[in-house]
Design a protein around this nucleic acid. Structure first.
Lengths: 228, 228
DNA sequence: TAAATATAATAGTATTACTATCATAACTTG
DNA sequence: CAAGTTATGATAGTAATACTATTATATTTA
């Protein structure tokens, strides 16, 4: 799978950048180092000026790639969801049994990202951390609806839809497949956050816990039980 | 219940303010109008200067009540969770059957806030909207751990704990009571957000849907079923 | 080699998120 | 009711942010 992923272009909405950062060395460095810097100091404290210093380039050069840091966050998180979507599709598309398929899908979206799969200059471990800590900020804004109309969230929406479809394939009669799918995706990020900062609010302390918790949650909600 | 609530002091951590806004007319106006303004323009665009203009007072006077707008958000959201906690406690403490109790609790925490119960100068409908749209921002920061140590999230944590305890009272063997409780609280806010901005990602379009969805989700996870 | 393009350097602006100081208004207590 | 205390208001000032604009200098390409 790693080899397959290496040859694939992770595609994000081209309105998210002014100039495609994948197209130049500087662009790649901007993306690469922005992940490290946001991870390090957090999105609030992150500025293009600081990034410029870090990459020994100029603030104004970064502005030629991204309109502002919010669009950059949308770019990075879209990249992440696109990457997850590929992992999901490759792992499940050959599967026939709907329950096994859903089980695999749930594992993909709830497992921790532990190794940098070296697709590119992008550090997926740090990026996952950014998604956990900052993704909500990308849509909890007054501009959500316009941003949504411009297609900035299509990849995430498609991912929820894929999960929702897999849920329906296990139990057609279940009326909350979209809610359950969105709960799993959002909830999984939340459980990882709680594990690090509010351990008393979660039971997911060990590696496989989020996957087990959400797998049980989903299959207990559906008529056709796993392995049953 | 409304009468009971009227006589109760909603208590928030006193480190969240410099001077207790409940203690003066100006303080109450600051809180009252901040809710309207944050609701109107969003937390990012909200500033003490703008609030000063709105309440025909001075920026510097507001700084005498709150250190900064982040602490103000923590104050407002703490107030909200405290209010919800009282509603939860009053509605459930006389109940004996664990399942019925949990069912009632889930209804309280997932129901939409539709009427301003007129406890005070605080508009609970708008405040609920603020919690849905801004609460995550209060903890998704680099300062979470220090803020947490200072007790800024105690009320929320106590609420999750109450829910978690009620879950355990229905099914002692369930190993994810804290995760389930935190999923319900966070997930409920998320479903309301999706309903307004990403309707395709949720099935909760009608009034009672979030309550039904989460009630089913919880009871299907537990051994002792509702009405069974 | 000239032209085109990308990047770097510098300067400048409005706004934000404050702090500090001083004046005045309002309330409190002797 | 006067004097003191405290609350509020007005103004000014600062460093940082989030940009825009301009010009200079590399680097690439035709």
């Amino acid at each position: 799978m790693e080899r397959l992923l290496q040859s694939i272009q992770i595609g994000v909405n081209d309105k998210l950048y002014i100039k495609d950062p994948q197209s130049t060395t500087l662009g790649k460095r901007i993306v690469e180092e922005s992940i490290l810097l946001i991870h390090e100091i957090g999105f609030e404290a992150f500025t293009f000026k600081k990034l410029g210093v870090k990459i020994k380039s100029n603030e104004s050069s970064i502005y030629r790639y991204f309109e502002n840091k919010h669009k950059m966050l949308l770019y990075l998180t879209s990249w992440y969801w696109s990457w997850l979507e590929y992992k999901l599709v490759f792992s499940t598309n050959s599967m026939k049994d709907a329950s096994e398929k859903l089980k695999t899908a749930l594992a993909i979206v709830t497992q921790p990202t532990e190794v940098d799969s070296n697709i590119s200059h992008i550090n997926e471990v740090f990026l996952t951390h950014i998604v956990i800590n900052e993704y909500s900020k990308s849509y909890l804004t007054k501009e959500v609806d316009t941003n949504n109309k411009e297609g900035y969230f299509v990849i995430y929406k498609r991912l929820v839809d894929r999960l929702s479809t897999m849920i329906k394939e296990v139990d057609t009669s279940y009326p909350y497949s979209s809610s359950l799918a969105s709960t799993v995706l959002e909830g999984s990020l939340h459980q990882y956050f709680l594990k690090d900062h509010f351990p008393s609010l979660t039971d997911c302390h060990e590696k496989g816990d989020p996957t087990n918790y959400f797998t049980e949650l989903v299959f207990n909600s559906l008529n056709k039980k796993l392995n049953g």
